[in-house]
Amino acid sequence: MGFLPFVKLGLVANGIIFGSVIALGAIGLTLVYGILKLGNFAHGDYMAFGAYVAFYIVDGLLPRAGIEGAGLGPFTFGFPVLIALPLSAIVVALGAIALDLLIYRRLRQRGASTAILMMASLGVAIAIRGLVQLIWSGDTQHYPRESRQVYHLPMDVRIPPDGLFVAIVAVILVAGVYMLLTYTKIGKAMRATSDNPSLALVTGINTKHVVWWTWGIGGALAAIAGVLLAVVQAQLLPIMGWKFLIPLFAAVILGGIGNPYGALIGALVVGVSMEVSTQWINPSYKPAVAFAIMIGVLLARPHGIFGDSQ
């Protein structure tokens, strides 16, 4: 590669894998942010909850039906994870909608400020984490796994097969979201509501449905992102979601709030930067790198890399 010859390509590849997990979370977060004007501090914990729901399915539910396994093909995880992935997405999607009906809808109807909405989401975040710890304890867990060889590519690039799986799932889902937003009536209505909520209201757009779809999609993507994160990190921890908030928000702000395509690019930029930074600095600083990118963007282009720099 001619450009940046000093950057290790393997780190770039890891960054893309990590970035695609961020992307799944960030797309949901930016949709909720744009459409409901809510910076959802519980989004990371929706992810963690999704990962744990899948863990319960894989570890508790399916074995009772005699379905068990690890080491499916080249992957460390087994077939049960593939079953748990959509189920967990549905559970979290419904949960996100239920929380809206229970909490956020009431606040919106009262005309509560964004700060109050965000405060409530912080409460939700804390409560979810407490619940996860209460049910599954604060200890490290993992999906049943068998170790696998990594793929060796030229130029010293090594990719774990799990990483490939994560990237492929992310690509499929991102394409699905793109189709939905571009070609379906509800998807266009979501974009319209994000663009201009009060105009959407007087245009006759059924904002109630838009809200449900937004939480449904955001919740489902978050759950899948959580499962994939647990797969690539080979562990589950209750705090995994809260720790993920900084890269998530960095990606959203980078791409411009409410812009799902921007969030995708932002996520890849953040993911690759975080991984590549480990070439020079201590890997545990990765969240700080995401934070630094976010501050840098706010200084240079306050409305995101694609927004107007007003």
Binding site: K185, R191, S194, D195, N196, L199, N259
Partner: peptide, 14 residues
């Protein structure tokens, strides 16, 4: 009074 990130046609569809 428009949806700026959507095309003219999409605005009319909305």
């Amino acid at each position: 009074n428009i949806f700026p990130s959507m095309t003219t046609r999409e605005n009319l569809e909305m």
